[in-house]
């Protein structure tokens, strides 16, 4: 039996790729792997986020807890998060989680001195490490129009109000708190397989065809203006809502169309918060999943314990 393998060889095809967006096909594997990837991307790929806030002065209208919560939710660039240490298993610091290997310090110092309301934003957060900074959502197009992007607003100050604080950012995962989740949206759909019964369809009048095509809320089918034939224009627009099947039934034409979900073919859509690139998010998820599997391997002593039991086991098997 040794050496026998039930391994699969999944295939990937990237359809669209932006910094914070990726769309790709995943084939020749099953839903468990696709879903494990989705779950890991949401809950277990590490990023860096503000976890501890020491407030020195806060005369703003928002209270300390409120500001701390808002700071935590600001996405920070986390490209080195995979190699960073979790502060709970960092041995460089004495468990206080404030050393350079497991944390990044931020400072914020803002005071409103004019009559105009001052927006304190993520750009006012000064990082001690240039690799970990608040994500820049500046749209390059906005710079051209002179409309400067100011980052994520933390609080607004009026004249005389002040906010001064020190914040520690740490590595974490989405399971601990959603602020560490690098994923805005991760979703996949099963690729649909659509078979139109051409013979039955051909017997329909144009009105009937039209009514049937329009019964789908999404534009999956259309009528070819030249031939008058019903064609599938966008398979993937189908959301498994069964509306066309119900319509066919209502028209007295069950079996007009047959739709199956392929069990081994998925279309993923990944959107990142900006903490890491969407493509990196997928790669990190694979890596994290590999590490998880490695951790659940049986340890040596378990195997030994079973070997000692083995004689009896063999006896049982023999009997």
């Amino acid at each position: 039996m040794e050496g026998m393998s039930y391994q699969r060889f999944p295939k990937v095809k990237i359809r669209e790729l932006k910094d914070d967006y990726a769309k790709f096909e995943l084939r020749d594997t099953d839903s468990s792997v696709a879903n494990a990837l989705r779950r890991v991307m949401i809950a277990e790929v590490p990023t860096v986020a503000i976890d501890l806030v020491e407030i020195e002065v806060n005369s703003s209208v928002l209270n300390d807890e409120f500001i701390a919560h808002r700071l935590g939710l600001i996405p920070l660039t986390s490209d080195n998060a995979m190699s960073m240490r979790f502060s709970r298993d960092c041995d460089a610091c004495d468990g206080d989680g404030q050393c350079e290997y497991c944390s990044v310090e931020f400072h914020l110092n803002a005071k409103c001195r004019t009559d105009q309301t001052l927006d304190v934003t993520s750009k006012d957060l000064i990082s001690a490490d240039h690799r970990v900074t608040p994500v820049d959502f500046g749209d390059p197009a906005a710079y051209d129009s002179g409309d400067q992007q100011r980052g994520i607003i933390i609080v607004k100050l009026r004249r005389g109000q002040e906010l001064r604080l020190r914040a520690i950012a740490r590595k974490g995962i989405g399971k601990d708190h959603a602020k560490w989740s690098p994923a805005a949206t991760v979703t996949f759909m099963y690729e649909p397989e659509i078979h139109i019964n051409e013979e039955m369809m051909g017997n329909l009048t144009l009105e009937e065809k039209k009514a049937w095509v329009e019964s789908s809320p999404t534009r999956v089918f259309d009528i070819d203006p030249n031939t008058g034939q019903v064609v599938v224009v966008d398979r993937e627009a189908y959301t498994y809502d069964d509306e066309v099947l119900k319509k066919a039934e209502a028209m007295g034409k069950p079996g007009l169309v047959e739709i199956y979900a392929k069990e081994d073919s998925f279309i993923f859509t990944v959107e990142s918060t900006g903490a890491i690139k969407a493509s990196q998010l997928v790669l990190n998820a694979i890596e994290v999943l590999k590490q998880k599997l490695d951790a659940v391997r049986l340890s040596e002593d378990t195997v030994e314990a079973d070997d000692q039991f083995g004689e009896l086991g063999a006896h049982m098997r023999g009997g």
Binding site: S31, A34, N35, P217, R219, Y240, D241
Partner: peptide, 21 residues
């Protein structure tokens, strides 16, 4: 329906534990 959603407000959902419909 015109907005591209099932008209009664229903949606196909997937099980978060297994990824199956």
């Amino acid at each position: 329906h015109k907005l591209g959603y099932q008209k009664h407000g229903f949606e196909t959902m997937y099980n978060g534990d297994t990824g199956r419909r």
